[in-house]
Design a protein around this nucleic acid. Structure first.
Lengths: 318, 318
DNA sequence: CTTGGTGTGTCAATATATTGTCTATGTATT
DNA sequence: AATACATAGACAATATATTGACACACCAAG
């Protein structure tokens, strides 16, 4: 976590709250206590900003500030993801389910194990529950980097070894796809947030990398226009022009030897407005390195690197 | 269980009851006793909300509030499951909402128009919001049949006419995919509920039909194992054996002239246990009619017909 | 069939609480 | 000097609480 501190104006921009309101919340509910500069001006940390963002989410959803202002960060995260969901009506039947419930795990490895076990058993409910708990315990970003990404990788490996079948991979993909799609919208940021378009080039059918990228960007405060997999360059350009995004993120996973991809990338750069940046990531990134370099795309080796690139992009243009 | 407390507005949103009614129930029947804040405002726990939800379920099912208000939580739970209605879904309300609790009765056509406009504008947030509101106003089943299915059809037509581009179709598909994926899990299914596997045969890449089928089955109280698109017959069979489902639902949309499909279908029937039924639906259903008849699949002409088939299947085996 | 009671949801009126915004004045930063 | 920020207080717009009344459906007895 960076030690950077932000003045109130930046915080207002990023959260969509007015400086007035931020100060009033601090005064009335002591929900945050930013540091002060030598001249008594407020200096906010990234954690403060996340807290304010979460508060805005739940308040927009109808909660009153008075009842949520004193919650912990974890409680706020949990509330933000569960906003609007009715509490689960638990039908307590001591039937088929009990063997799978264990004391709430804490470590990413534990979550990974539980998730992998559920995926191997085609157990949708348990897999969803583990992801939910991991999301609450670890937060959105760590969940992506330390549970979901390794889980996807591990399922791929297990398939290569013959331990799992294609059906397991499809099932887990579908569950993760739904989970991430929903978590992206939990933090739907205010309209002035910078926007990013996420897709994969034509021929790249794997969707999961793109969904993870979308969720990561959303967790970092970007407004995401997600277009799913396999979109030709001219379609991407049309969507960019219509939605006014600042950057395009492409996920490249499989195949790694498609001769059409370099062409598509070149065409994309040619048709795209100069000021729109291109970010690329995914396992197949290396295979297309030359083409990516030629179009000046920022290549990201992982989600951390992608998040960093997003921050730089935002800084550069704010 | 979290210690979070909710103001009455949130409780009204999540239960569908008016604040008025919630207070009246408290006063007349003392069915709940929420805490109070310093300013004497009611603060409800998650348990309180669950109780109110259950009360609404059984009252909607015909019981009078006076006779059920004094039941314990457990009694309410079992009564709610025994009324056996398609468990009502109180989906989320996101973002700012009109402050009224008797919103102008909106017609499916209105939602369809708004949704189509949002899809045309690549406006993810609005499209999600319209789907949310439609889900509440119309209920899950009508939403599927009268908004989502026509919307998908209309976007397809607009694309054929050149009014929309592929990017729009991809975008709407992604949003609907996320929405339906999430709505399938909004309610906790009874562990003993009959189970259904949903997928498309190898070569059928369109996912949306399968997702709609999954959501429909889920809304009708089935436990759904969703495997995404394009799965070979032997993979389907493996998943059926492992998950112990009672039936397999296949969505057939495009292409309509794949010579591999009849083969796949025949192989599926041959490998599948006798007692597992096969349901088929989708636009391309007619094109493969002969093959479907040969394997004894139940062909569904639409979501209504599909729901009917599910009910019959459940009756037949209970 | 009518009549009256009961159960139930809704509404009106008034008072209080909560919450976002605004104003005024002074200080910091650039 | 011009802009941005801090503090305190005031104010307006909603939300909520409470009480009492009313409308409607249902049912049982006359």
């Amino acid at each position: 976590m960076s030690t950077v501190r932000h003045p109130i104006k930046i915080v207002a921009q990023r959260t969509g709250l007015s400086p007035h309101l931020i100060r009033v919340w601090e005064k009335r509910y002591a929900t945050i206590q930013p540091e002060r500069s030598g001249g008594n001006q407020r200096l906010y940390s990234d954690t403060d900003i996340e807290r304010l963002l979460l508060l805005k989410v739940v308040v927009d959803a109808g909660h009153s500030i008075g009842t949520v202002a004193s919650l912990t960060l974890d409680q706020l995260r949990s509330l933000a993801t569960s906003v609007g969901k009715p509490p689960l009506i638990v039908t307590q039947l001591s039937g088929a389910r009990p063997p799978t419930f264990s004391p709430p795990p804490r470590q990413p490895e534990t979550f990974l194990e539980s998730a992998f076990a559920a995926a191997s058993a085609l157990d949708t409910v348990t897999l969803e529950r583990v992801l939910d708990e991991a999301s609450i315990a670890l937060g959105q970003v760590a969940l992506l980097g330390q549970v979901i990404a390794p889980l996807v990788h591990r399922i791929g490996e297990a398939w290569r070894l013959g331990d799992l079948k294609v059906a397991h991979e499809h099932h887990a993909t579908a569950v993760i796809r739904t989970f991430l799609g929903h978590s992206s919208r939990a933090l739907a940021i205010h309209p002035a947030a910078p926007a990013l378009l996420v897709t994969t080039p034509a021929g790249q059918l794997h969707e999961l990398g793109a969904v993870m990228v979308a969720a990561c960007a959303s967790a970092h405060g970007w407004r995401v226009v997600y277009l799913g997999p396999s979109l030709p360059a001219d379609e991407i350009v049309g969507a960019v022009r219509q939605s006014g995004v600042r950057a395009v993120a492409l996920s490249l996973v499989h195949p790694e030897d498609d001769p059409g991809i370099p062409e598509e990338l070149a065409r994309l750069r040619r048709l795209l407005p100069q000021e729109v940046a291109i970010l690329a990531g995914g396992r197949a990134c290396g295979a297309y390195r030359r083409a990516l370099e030629q179009i000046g795309a920022t290549q990201c080796s992982g989600l951390d690197s992608f998040a960093l690139a997003l921050d730089q992009l935002r800084q550069g243009r704010n």
